[in-house]
């Protein structure tokens, strides 16, 4: 098992474990923390996977994810305003 795959496994477990757990408990605002974690980890994970699969063209996926995650975060901070 290559180190990349191992690293990807760890990241996936973080995404699916703490990320999902935090995102599925509490109020909408409290869940944002989980979403933040998940987004950051997902970008790393997708990058590592592109490298592990030996597909540099796949790096567009984490790139788009970064950009859209930013937009997504703004969506939530903007529209969950006053919800706390």
């Amino acid at each position: 098992m290559s180190p990349f795959v191992l690293l990807a496994g760890v990241l996936l477990v973080v995404l699916a474990g703490p990320g999902l757990l935090l995102a599925s408990r509490g109020t909408a605002v409290a869940r944002l923390a989980g979403l933040q974690l998940a987004q950051a980890v997902a970008v790393l994970l997708l990058t590592v996977l592109a490298l592990a699969l030996g597909q540099p063209s796949m790096l567009i996926v984490p790139l788009v994810t970064v950009l859209l995650s930013f937009a997504g975060t703004l969506v939530f901070t903007r529209l969950l305003r006053g919800v706390v």
Binding site: V64, L67, L68, F70, A71, L74, V75, R78
Partner: peptide, 11 residues
Amino acid sequence: VLATALHLLYL
């Protein structure tokens, strides 16, 4: 993605 870019203005 292009459409989202435009809405960054709103966000």
